Amino acid sequence: MQSEFQTYMELGFEHIADLAAYDHILFIVALCAIYRISEWRKVGILVTAFTLGHSLTLALAALDVIRVPAAWVEFLIPVTIFLTALYNTVIHKLGEEREGTFSRKLNLNYLFALLFGLIHGMGFSNFFRSMLMPGEENSLIRQLLAFNIGVELGQLTIVAIILVLAYIGMNRLRIPQRDWNLFISGMAAGPALIMMMERWPF
């Protein structure tokens, strides 16, 4: 019989990797669109910034310190995807390639990941609260930790897949990095725009 910690860690992993709830996956895809596999350290820092953001609001929302209407959270999540993809295309237009990568300042990218992580954390919290059973409040912190670890493992799995695909696309199929960026960003932006229209909260 598996432990409570393992159960919530698996729930976190399954939630981020759930193809039926693909909005979080699309955000990770958009985050990775401008990177080569050789830049995996930069992507790791980016995902860590996102994790810090969503861990904070997941904890605050799960502890009922903050509560944001679910309709707004569900609308803002695809907004973060669309804005990330749009930011990628602005880099495409303004950047100059230098030694195989874009010439760009990445601090803004990290800030976006942190801020957008705050929004995604509220989305995670809705799912997390629905998984809580009555009388489990005493072990809430342990459950939050396990759930966050599961989410992080799921995110890193998605990042690894995207970077491997980027390697195949750019190094084996010789797709220019700018074209790859536009393709992946567009692939994320299209569904995000549809979700924004479907989830308009007014």
Score class of each variant (00 low, 15 high):
Ala20Arg: 15
Gly121Tyr: 01
Ile91Ala: 11
Ser139Cys: 06
Tyr8Pro: 00
Ile77Val: 15
Val68Pro: 00
Leu156Arg: 07
Ile162Asp: 01
Val43Cys: 12
Phe112His: 05
Ile77Met: 05
Asn148His: 10
Leu52Phe: 12
Trp180Ile: 10
Leu114Arg: 03
Ser185Met: 10
Arg172Phe: 06
Gly12Trp: 07
Ile16Tyr: 13
Met197Ala: 14
Leu11Trp: 09
Phe127Arg: 00
Gly150Leu: 02
Ile161Glu: 00
Ala166Glu: 01
Thr51Ile: 03
Met1Lys: 14
Thr84Ile: 06
Phe124Pro: 00
Arg129Ile: 02
Thr7Ser: 13
Ser3Ile: 09
His120Phe: 03
Gly186Val: 08
Arg129Trp: 00
Phe127Lys: 00
Gly190Arg: 06
Glu74Ala: 02
Met133Gln: 11
Tyr8Thr: 04
Arg199Cys: 01
Val29His: 04
Thr57Trp: 01
Leu118Asn: 04
Phe27Gly: 01
Asn148Arg: 04
Phe102Asp: 11
Lys42Asp: 11
Val151Arg: 01
Phe127Tyr: 07
Phe202Val: 08
Ile45Met: 08
Phe5Gly: 05
Met133Gly: 04
Glu152Lys: 08
Pro134Ile: 15
Gly44Ile: 12
Glu4Asn: 15
Trp200Val: 04
His120Gly: 02
Asn138Val: 12
Gly95Val: 05
Val29Thr: 07
Trp180Val: 07
Leu52Arg: 03
Ile77His: 08
Tyr22Cys: 10
Phe82Val: 07
Lys42Arg: 15
Phe50Asp: 06
Phe112Met: 13
Gly186Phe: 08
Phe13Tyr: 15
Phe128Thr: 00
Leu19Gln: 10
Ala49Phe: 10
His92Cys: 14
Leu52Ala: 13
Ile119Ser: 02
Ala188Arg: 02
Leu46Arg: 03
Tyr110Thr: 11
Ala30Tyr: 11
Gln155Leu: 07
Arg104Ala: 13
Met195Tyr: 14
Val79Ala: 06
Leu165Tyr: 05
Tyr22Asp: 09
Leu83Tyr: 06
Leu52Lys: 03
Glu14Lys: 14
Ile81Arg: 06
Arg104Leu: 12
Phe202Met: 06
Leu165Lys: 03
Asp64His: 05
Lys93Ala: 11
Glu4Ser: 15
Ser185Lys: 06
Trp72His: 12
Arg41Lys: 15
Ile184Trp: 02
Leu19Trp: 14
Ile16Trp: 12
Val68His: 00
Glu198Met: 12
Leu165Cys: 09
Val65Asp: 05
Ile16Gln: 09
Val159Ile: 13
Trp40Val: 14
His54Leu: 02
Gly150Asn: 03
Asn88Tyr: 09
Glu14Gly: 01
Leu60Gln: 03
Arg174Thr: 04
Ile194Ala: 08
Val65Thr: 10
Glu4His: 13
Ser38Thr: 13
Glu198Val: 10
Cys32His: 04
Lys105Tyr: 09
Ile37Glu: 07
Ala17Lys: 05
Ser55Ala: 13
Ile175Trp: 11
Ile161Gln: 00
Thr57Met: 03
Asn88Thr: 13
Leu19Glu: 09
Ile194His: 10
Ile45Ser: 11
Ile45Trp: 14
Gln6Leu: 15
Ala21Asp: 14
Ala113Glu: 01
Arg104Val: 15
Met1Ser: 14
Thr89Cys: 14
Asp18Ile: 06
Ala166Tyr: 01
Ala61Tyr: 00
Ser38Ile: 09
Pro78Trp: 08
Asn138Gly: 10
Ile168Gln: 04
Phe128Ser: 03
Val29Ile: 14
Ile194Thr: 12
Ala33Trp: 07
Ala33Lys: 09
Ala188Glu: 05
Pro176Thr: 12
Asp23Glu: 11
Gly12Ile: 09
